[in-house]
Simulated assay, not measured.
Amino acid sequence: MNEKRFALEFTVDSERILLREFLQAMGISKRTLTAVKYEGGKLLVNGAERSVRHILCRGDLVLVEFPPEEPSEGLVPEIGPLEILYEDDAILIINKPAGQGTIPSRDHPNGTVANYVAGKFATEKIPSTVHIVTRLDTDTSGLVCIAKNRHIHHLLSEQMRTVGFHRGYMAFVEGYIEQDAFVVEQPIGRKDGSIIERTVREDGQYARTDVRVLERFVRNEMQYTSVFLKLFTGRTHQIRVHMKWLGHPLIGDDLYGGSREILGRQALHCASIGFRHPLTGEPLMFTSELPLDLLQLRLK
């Protein structure tokens, strides 16, 4: 089988540096280097295989061939529809519909984004497992970023941890929010007695959500507000928890106090993600329009 092995090439621009140190400076983690050594990858310097202790000289050409990755246990490759907004050798941007899981779970073991991406990789002979960078809840629609290699996943995770990774959401919440823009900084942790629900609690993890009001409207004599939310952290159910804490749960989010009278799922959509390409450094921004069920909430 002719697999499309992932490889990166670098030109050395300094004198007498260990191959290990050079590759770490290029953003390749110790864990990835260990996988290259023991799981079928290669390190080539000017076409010859070398160990990480090899001393490099200026102008040397270094090629890193990454090992093939086995699909995650329990992830069954399936052929199914994927709305692909962008794809290259490193990343995949998917527009996910509401009702589809991002990864398999007890309630949704099949038909998830990960199942379909694994099927795509198998069909195209891409020897990689599925690395979800930005995961969405099953009933949240919108953009999902997927890395096509563990090294790319590492680089994007570092962006999220250090220099930022833009994640913008649109939501429809219950009630009238008076402030036009504000910041919610409230720690989030697991709710006592629940394995699913989260809550604001003093001993939780730091979480920040920026909120900007887009529109205030009335439907069926009830007040609602549409908002744009920017995440600075990625805690489980962060937006849903913060909006409940504010007293404005998402429409349709019955887990966190929202009513399903006018919508059968939480009114949340990942509308934009932005980051620097992990290999080229090019700034990238992707957007997704609101799906029909959320657009219809605006109808008076």
Score class of each variant (00 low, 15 high):
215 E>G: 02
257 G>F: 01
275 F>I: 08
244 K>C: 07
247 G>W: 03
212 R>H: 13
249 P>R: 00
219 R>P: 04
277 H>V: 12
242 H>K: 10
223 Q>T: 07
255 L>S: 01
273 I>K: 01
255 L>K: 11
254 D>R: 15
264 G>V: 04
237 H>T: 05
240 R>N: 06
244 K>F: 04
244 K>G: 02
264 G>F: 08
240 R>E: 03
257 G>A: 08
248 H>M: 05
245 W>E: 09
240 R>H: 09
271 A>D: 05
231 L>G: 01
260 R>F: 00
260 R>D: 06
217 F>C: 14
208 R>I: 15
267 A>R: 04
216 R>H: 12
241 V>Y: 07
249 P>L: 00
261 E>M: 05
218 V>C: 13
243 M>Q: 00
225 T>W: 14
212 R>G: 03
256 Y>F: 04
245 W>R: 06
250 L>T: 01
250 L>Y: 01
277 H>Y: 13
214 L>V: 09
239 I>E: 01
240 R>I: 04
211 V>S: 09
226 S>R: 14
257 G>I: 06
275 F>N: 02
231 L>D: 01
216 R>L: 10
227 V>L: 15
214 L>W: 07
258 G>T: 04
276 R>Q: 10
252 G>P: 09
251 I>E: 03
210 D>Q: 13
214 L>F: 08
243 M>R: 01
214 L>K: 10
234 G>A: 11
237 H>A: 07
271 A>C: 10
241 V>E: 06
224 Y>L: 15
216 R>V: 11
252 G>F: 03
259 S>R: 12
265 R>F: 06
242 H>I: 09
213 V>A: 12
249 P>E: 00
244 K>I: 03
259 S>K: 15
272 S>K: 13
211 V>A: 08
228 F>M: 08
225 T>A: 14
274 G>V: 09
264 G>H: 12
249 P>V: 00
238 Q>N: 13
218 V>L: 14
274 G>H: 13
263 L>F: 02
212 R>W: 09
270 C>V: 08
275 F>H: 03
252 G>Q: 04
250 L>R: 02
230 K>I: 07
239 I>L: 12
215 E>D: 11
213 V>N: 10
218 V>S: 15
273 I>E: 02
261 E>H: 12
211 V>D: 03
231 L>Q: 01
222 M>C: 09
264 G>T: 10
223 Q>D: 11
228 F>K: 07
218 V>I: 15
265 R>A: 06
272 S>R: 13
223 Q>K: 14
226 S>T: 13
224 Y>P: 02
213 V>R: 15
274 G>L: 10
233 T>N: 08
246 L>Q: 08
264 G>R: 14
245 W>F: 14
217 F>Y: 15
209 T>P: 10
225 T>I: 10
227 V>G: 07
208 R>P: 05
